[in-house]
Design a protein around this nucleic acid. Structure first.
Length: 782
DNA sequence: CAGTGAGCGAGCTTCCGCTTGACTT
């Protein structure tokens, strides 16, 4: 019997497919790319027409060896990698590295994992599309050129270990430009007028009606004048308009919409959403989670239909086929959906359950009928006024998909109440109970969240489903952007109230709010961004990716050679690199804030070796300048002279406690109090400049009790301590930490048992390290 | 882990897209 080998990208997919194919077939996976440009080397031969120098990375050697063994034994090898640029390239690398030949190799693709789809694919093989492979090589080489030529410029001109790239740098740009919009935003005040009426409805009952004026007033005087006009005048129902509207369900999830909705509904960071989705995928609960497609398989469409009819009835079902709108989508997979649509819930962690149910609801809702609504607008005429009061209401005539699921919105404005309005008739009078004119302020555009930034990237066609979450991690790890709580101070506003014929004015205050999980640029982020925009405007253009994608498409269609396309790019790009290296000095983002009133010396802020610093005095002067690091919530761009001068008040002596001096200062890990050799971090909301001796003593005392509780048991003679740590109890000995095996009660351990555990751990460690090293050495020898 | 920013130089850092583990005391 013939031996048949199928290679796919994902192990989970391999398992499923093996089940469908049955006897005679072995299905293995490549786990993504098996070969790439060398990790730490430019690896593009510029003297040899951009020839890429590929290597199998160390961690893939074993896997490749196993694939080679299997393919040598096989009579036929099907390369079933994804149907997109990257998938085609993986197939080609497999072909090359495994030493396959045309006679025994078949290239197949499928977009859904069903028995019929797979069998059909097996029956319709093709050969590897080298044009598509070359489009991928162009993509890969371009990204390497951009990343590995730009990053070193930043190391020289700004700070070591920074990075730049086609995707990450424009991502940072989005955050930087939004922050500047916010900084330049001028809030404007206006007066919003609302009214509460008493009215008799068509059944003769007395009811209340809320209404809002169709105009806002720019000044308090105008608002007051209007309320005076309202006082004692007549109000009449002028018009009642009802119109039916429809609401459509949202399409099934793609990676980016899943990330957005999990963020809105559960506040999940995008990385968490992906980790949970990966678990669900590996357990066979959902289809592939890195996709840009909204397409559902025929099987999914028909089971969804049955399910909807069972749970809600025939009229709730509407057959819908969705089409991807996002730029550069490659649609190698289905939308994200439950593999088994009959299953409404699953077993698993709370987070897994939540995410699964969200996916289930979204999938089901996407095949349900439109919701039918009726919108009612009542306009109220005010005697002798051109302005009108307007009441709007909405009622659901048929819930349709709303029975299951409603997509959330990012809109932070208060949701307008969608209540039912009373039945009234045109011409009837209303009695005004209260009218209020409230001062409102325009809001600056919102900072991006992880998820809203991903949405923007997708909109611009920048990045891919597999890179959205990692890109966010990169710009956070490089400290170009910060995810932190941003406090909005309380805002005071004026409120005019007309009641019982009198107008009263009060000053009120909205509570302070805290923005959580919002992204804002750091000082480094600002400086790197400005440098790149100045010298590499083409790369930093939001349309750069879209432009190169059209080149890649032409390569894929065989219209142009990939090396020619890269050459055109490089000939323009590289001179910019040389120019930036040769003709620019250090870029520090230096800014003079003013003069220090004490010394009369100038005060600067700039990027130093370890980040943003403030500086008093100049280097050239006789006296050395003084330096102080900026706090994590300050940036070069926004810090004021006063705030900068405050930084120099630290470290500050607080006084003595137990014959030791106490100081307060700000270190690498934030503000702290020091007492001799003991350090204690300040609580989050505590301002170091407000620190007193009393508060500092309390902090030290608190730390002492915490330390005492930390210790479960100790054998000082043997230098063994059983301590409570972040991840539970552990043993500390000779400067090292050891895990306590499961099933042991930490408090009951004896010295002997502890020594036993320490001995065992040491043994395992040496085994692990030697075991890992030997095969690697063996492979490198070959 | 709780500074640092004199200057020099060696040696290091870096991209995007595919994929899944190993692993926290």
């Amino acid at each position: 019997m013939q031996k048949k080998l199928v290679i796919v990208e994902s192990p989970a997919k391999a398992k499923t497919i093996e089940r469908f194919l049955g006897e005679g077939y072995t299905v293995l996976s490549s786990k993504g790319h098996i070969r790439d440009l060398k990790e730490k080397d430019f690896s593009i031969d510029l003297d040899n027409n951009y020839k890429p120098l590929y290597e199998v990375p160390a961690e893939k050697k074993e896997l490749v060896a196993n694939l080679k063994k299997a393919s040598n034994k096989a009579d036929v090898v099907w390369l079933a990698t994804d149907e997109d640029r990257e998938g085609e390239a993986i197939a080609w690398h497999l072909y090359e590295v495994l030493g396959l030949n045309e006679a025994k190799t078949r290239r197949i693709v499928f977009h859904e994992i069903t028995k019929t789809a797979i069998q059909k694919a097996i029956e319709n093989p093709r050969t590897i599309n080298l044009n598509l492979v070359n489009a991928q090589q162009a993509r890969r080489v371009l990204d390497r050129i951009v990343g590995f030529e730009l990053s070193p410029i930043l190391w020289k001109k700004i700070k070591p270990a920074l990075s730049a790239g086609r995707v990450q740098s424009v991502t940072v740009r989005l955050v930087v430009e939004r922050e500047r919009e916010i900084n330049n935003f001028k809030t404007e005040a206006s007066y919003r007028v609302t009214a509460l009426f008493n009215v008799t409805d068509t059944t003769g009952k007395n009811v209340e009606l809320k209404s809002e004026l169709n105009k806002r007033f720019a000044t308090k005087e105008e608002a007051r004048a209007f309320l005076e006009k309202c006082n004692g005048t007549d109000f009449v129902v002028e018009q009642i308009e009802t119109k039916p509207t429809k609401q459509k369900p949202a399409p099934p999830f793609t990676t980016s919409t899943l990330q957005q909705e999990a963020a809105r509904k559960f506040s999940f960071p995008v990385g968490l959403t992906m980790r949970i989705a990966q678990k669900l995928y590996e357990a066979g609960k959902i289809t592939y989670m890195r996709t840009d497609s909204v397409n559902l398989s025929d099987l999914a469409l028909s089971t969804a239909k049955q399910e909807i009819i069972t749970i809600a009835g025939e009229k709730y079902h509407t057959f819908r086929q969705y089409h991807t709108k996002s730029k550069g989508a490659q649609e190698a997979h289905e939308a994200i959906r439950p593999t088994d649509i009959n299953q409404h819930t699953i077993e698993g962690s709370q987070q897994e359950k939540k995410l699964y149910e969200l996916i289930w609801k979204r999938t089901i809702a996407s095949q349900m009928s439109d919701a039918e609504l009726e919108k009612t607008v009542i306009s109220i005429k005010i005697s002798d006024c051109t302005e009108k009061f307007i009441s709007t209401g909405e009622t659901i005539k048929f819930d349709g998909f709303l029975k299951v699921y409603l997509e959330s919105t990012d809109d932070e404005q208060e949701q307008k109440s969608k209540e039912m309005l009373p039945k009234l008739s045109v011409g009837q009078p209303l009695e005004l109970l209260i009218a209020e004119a409230q001062e409102r302020f325009t809001q600056h555009p919102p900072r991006y969240t992880e998820a809203s930034l991903v949405r923007k990237l997708e909109e611009l066609g920048i990045g891919r489903p597999s890179t959205y979450a990692p890109t966010i991690s990169t710009i956070l790890n490089r400290e170009y952007v910060d995810k932190k709580e941003i406090e909005n101070p309380p805002t005071a506003y004026d409120l005019l109230t007309l009641k019982n014929g009198k107008i009263k004015e009060v000053r009120k205050e909205d509570k302070a709010t805290v923005d959580k999980g919002k992204l804002s640029p750091t000082s480094i982020g600002f400086v790197v961004n400005d440098f790149l925009i100045e010298h590499f405007p083409d790369i930093m253009d939001y349309n750069f990716t879209a432009k190169v994608e059209t080149d890649f498409d032409e390569i894929a269609e065989g219209k142009i050679e990939w090396t020619k396309s890269i050459d055109q790019f490089y000939k323009k790009f590289h001179p910019n690199v040389t120019e930036a290296l040769e003709n620019t000095g250090k870029k520090t983002g230096e800014r003079q804030l003013g003069i220090d009133p004490k010394s009369g010396k100038p005060v600067f802020v700039k990027i130093g070796r370890f980040g943003a610093i403030a500086q008093i005095g100049e280097k050239s002067s006789e006296e050395k300048p003084r330096f102080a690091s900026l706090r994590s919530n300050q940036t070069l761009e926004t810090i004021t002279l006063e705030e900068a001068l405050d930084l120099f008040k630290l470290p500050m002596d607080l006084g003595e406690f137990e014959n030791e001096i106490m100081t307060v200062a700000v270190g690498r890990f934030g503000p702290y109090v020091r007492h001799g050799k003991v350090f204690v971090s300040l609580p989050k909301d505590e301002d170091p400049l407000e620190m007193t001796l009393e508060k500092a003593i309390q902090l030290i005392k608190d730390k002492r009790t915490a330390d005492a509780n930390r210790q479960i048991k100790s054998f000082p003679a043997e230098d063994i301590f059983i301590l409570n740590g972040q991840f539970g109890a552990y043993i500390a000995h000779n400067g090292k930490n050891y895990k306590i095996p499961k099933g042991k009660t930490p408090a009951d351990l004896s010295v002997e048992e502890c020594l036993q555990i320490i001995g065992d751990c040491e043994k395992i460690k040496t085994q692990k390290t030697s075991g890992k090293r030997s095969p690697r050495k063996a492979t490198t020898k070959k």
